[in-house]
Amino acid sequence: MKITLRIWRQANKDAQGKMQTYQLDNVSEEMSFLEMLDLLNEQLTDQDVEPVAFDHDCREGICGMCGVVINGAPHGRYNSPVATTTCQLHMRNFKDGDVIDIEPWRAGAFPVIKDLAVDRSAFDRIIQAGGYISVNTGSAPDAHSTPAPKREADKAFDAATCIGCGACVAACPNSSGMLFTSAKIAHLANLPQGQPERRLRVKAMVAAHDENGFGGCTNVGECAAVCPKSIPLESIGQLNRDLIASLFRGDGRTIS
């Protein structure tokens, strides 16, 4: 296949970026999207042009490191028949002669580092605010001391599959990180172990979400539609319920 690529090139965080066009021959259908970019980078290296920077690691759709916007959709969601990460998108979904536009996640909370790589540390800061259960190593009771109802445990699992890639933010017209934040809320709120800190957790994470520069949710659902792990939109409902309920009850903590 012959493919025309238009790729966002930006030297660093503060530089002005622009789309650059490249021609790529010898693309095979079996290649993954990132292998196609590898091929481009080999070609650019040969031509003494600096390769395109893009984040990637496991290349099996689980680490959440990769992610670019392909033809206006995170992870090329609408070029793929199923929910996917960029690394699991394959070139058989494209045709000979296609023009493919590749851009980084665009959001104020995710500044571009270089070309297609962005800084997603804001996600870590949201987790730091309260996305955990406070249990020190060695202090855990026997695993069977608290049975967890299967239905809730399954719900918790569905939310816990979030890979933190940031596609939800990239797709959202408001650059909101609500799907990501609510996935952690829903994961921990559906387990018995998550109950003691439930109220303070949702308050702290929601506050951290806003303070890190993400926008508000307007319930349009673009996030869930592009999510490679199909985190359900209901998670946001859970977050909203938990937050509103928590505001009417003390969190048992007197100092911040």
Binding site: Y132, T137, A140, D142, A143, P147, K150, F157
Partner: peptide, 16 residues
């Protein structure tokens, strides 16, 4: 034990 206490959602039987 440690992982369950941290909220790792291991597979469960219907009895929990």
């Amino acid at each position: 034990d440690q992982c369950v206490a941290q909220g790792v959602p291991f597979a469960r039987e219907y009895g929990g």
